[in-house]
Design a binder for these strands. Structure first.
Lengths: 244, 244
DNA sequence: CGCCAACTTGATGGCTGTCAAGTCAGGTGG
DNA sequence: CCACCTGACTTGACAGCCATCAAGTTGGCG
């Protein structure tokens, strides 16, 4: 009861975090999770609109999102940019920095957020000790690669409405995994950011939302989305169009 | 001279491989590279058109390309597919399989090829022993993620000619790194495969090649490409078009 | 109450997909 | 050695999807 447990320690313990079913500790046993506790020294708050890191920043840590919502984006010299992902609680960002020791994208908070700072050198060190952690970390990176390939498929071969349907279904599924409604949620990003992610202009995104609403698949009220016909959305995503 | 060195051993030693400046041993010291030798037990030949692995196959190994050229592709149930990359000598494929213990894409040889088989469990085991190997493997995965983000940028925000210019410049650079001509090479893939990778139809790819030739940037003779104006290609890639 | 960013909706145009016909190169068999 | 065949490629004509430009609406916030 009176054990010398500091507030800071409580605050940063993976073993007591309510995200442990989603975050790095996924699938680890109780004592293994406890070994992770020493991985996370600090937490950081990032206000909406602020960057957690930017392209070119020195890379030192990965970040596990504890609360909030981020987007990552890459840019070219000539001003073009592309949203490469939207990340929510329990997801890990910053892996892009390992290869060059500098970050290769920007991570921007889309709402007031909080992240666990995971010093990368510490993660490598613990990975050498704990096989399960090592394997889990490799899985996280592999999953990101597979996810990226899925986005390529979307960008390379789907039409506007198919892309948006896929996007909504993906969000829905991820909200479900976090215990939120799968059919009723608030978008944290603008039409323009959705468009950038999907390779579309904001007007096209807006039109597709309206179309889905007219077709009775969803109802849209600005950022508030309610999905009324999941099967219908899946059908939109699946239809190849004209080619037989 | 008469040391009992088996042919098999010679054949699979990273420490004597002429790709060691490109492959897993990149940046490792001599004795560290030697520790990799036990990582690679076998080599495999894959004939042109054959698959090294397919979606759904059990995952057990990564593959380092020793000779040849591959494409990887993902597909949806409804028949759509997308080439996610072209891999050449010294590059590592199969990472997509870690997350689910099953491969998540197909890897098809575009010419008669040879790969080193790297048992994944062995790689994890050695990674726990050798910090440098661990870090290097993480870098390989991180690089793949960063590369994928670049492809997303290409697919999401570039026009047909910009995409093809970027593609040619990327190939050129990778050939250079392997000691081949940067301006004169044979494409191993068809127009359709290039199109799939770039999110374009084969006719559009063909037209863009012809346009580049008319503009004096390259000369095209079926699969034989000669780049005559690298700077010109870079300019094509850089031009944002109309938006200012 | 007014301002502004975000969003919606309409009109128009262009890039690229689609369909079609023809060319080229390499390999096979007579 | 030549004719033929096939897959890959090129080129043209046309159409459709989505970008662009423009105007108006909504909702949040000072």
């Amino acid at each position: 009861m009176n054990a010398p447990v500091t507030l800071a320690h409580i605050k940063t313990a993976c073993s007591t975090c309510n995200l442990r079913e989603l975050c790095l500790p996924v699938g680890l046993k109780r004592d293994e999770v406890e070994s992770l506790d020493e991985l996370v020294y600090t937490r950081m708050k990032v206000k909406r609109g602020e960057s957690l890191f930017r392209t070119g920043d020195d890379f030192a840590s990965l970040y596990a999102i504890r609360v909030g919502f981020f987007k990552t984006r890459v840019a070219t010299e000539d001003g073009r940019d592309q949203v490469t992902g939207f990340q929510m609680a329990g997801e890990l960002i910053g892996i892009d920095g390992i290869v060059t020791d500098h970050h290769n994208c920007d991570a921007v908070a889309l709402e007031d957020s909080e992240v666990c700072v995971i010093p990368y050198s510490k993660l490598e060190e613990l990975s050498r000790k704990f096989e399960v952690l090592q394997h889990h970390f490799h899985k996280v990176m592999s999953r990101e690669i597979v996810r990226d390939h899925g986005v390529m498929l979307l960008l390379g071969s789907m039409r506007a409405e198919e892309r948006l349907a896929a996007f909504l279904l993906n969000l829905s599924q991820r909200f479900t995994a976090r215990g939120y409604s799968s059919s009723d949620f608030i978008l944290r990003m603008t039409r323009e950011e959705i468009g950038s992610y999907l390779g579309l202009k904001l007007e096209t995104v807006s039109r597709a939302f309206s179309k889905f609403q007219d077709d009775g698949l969803i109802s849209v009220q600005q950022k508030h989305i309610r999905i009324s016909d999941i099967a219908g959305l899946k059908k939109v995503m699946g239809q190849t169009g004209s080619t037989c």
